[in-house]
Amino acid sequence: MADLDILVNQFQNKNQVAFKKLYGMYSKSIHGVVYNIVKDADIADELMQDVFIKAWHKADTYSSKKGRFFTWILNIARNAAIDKTRSKAFKQSKQNLNADYFVDIIAGHENLDDSTDAIGIKKFVTQLGEKCKAVIELLYFKGFTQKEASEELQMPLGTVKTRNRNCIQQLRDMVL
């Protein structure tokens, strides 16, 4: 954590080397999150870059006391992507937005890189229960609160929390 703290601190001091490292660590994840929302590679490209530009310019608003750096930038990404889906231009061009979850996207990747992670994740998502897929989708990709997820999934608040814990545990077992 110490290394990450230093890196984030340098990033907040406008150190581009630190920025490049953080970009390398998280840009693909952010791209995945926004792509899962907008379902368009070109728009996702643009959004992801906008997210990092915004993070760069608003770096001083981040504080580790408010949460993880990844969580902070993930939040920026989700908000930006959701804002995008609400724009008039986006609605007009994406009338038939398909309802695929992240799992369908991962399973649909024909050319996933041959890394162990990628293979492990693809295997995981196909084996994952429907409830797990939904919980992870809502909490991590869509940014639903625990309460919103509870309502969406029609399950008790505490169940969302423990089910999520179990689902992430399975994921950790597969990819870490």
């Binding site: 998280y26 994840s29 791209h31 996702a44 996207i105 998502v125 991590y140 990709f141 870490l176």
Partner: peptide, 11 residues
């Protein structure tokens, strides 16, 4: 784990 999962979604 979440970083890896979300990254896997990116085309």
């Amino acid at each position: 784990a979440v970083v890896k999962l979300t990254a896997a979604v990116s085309p």
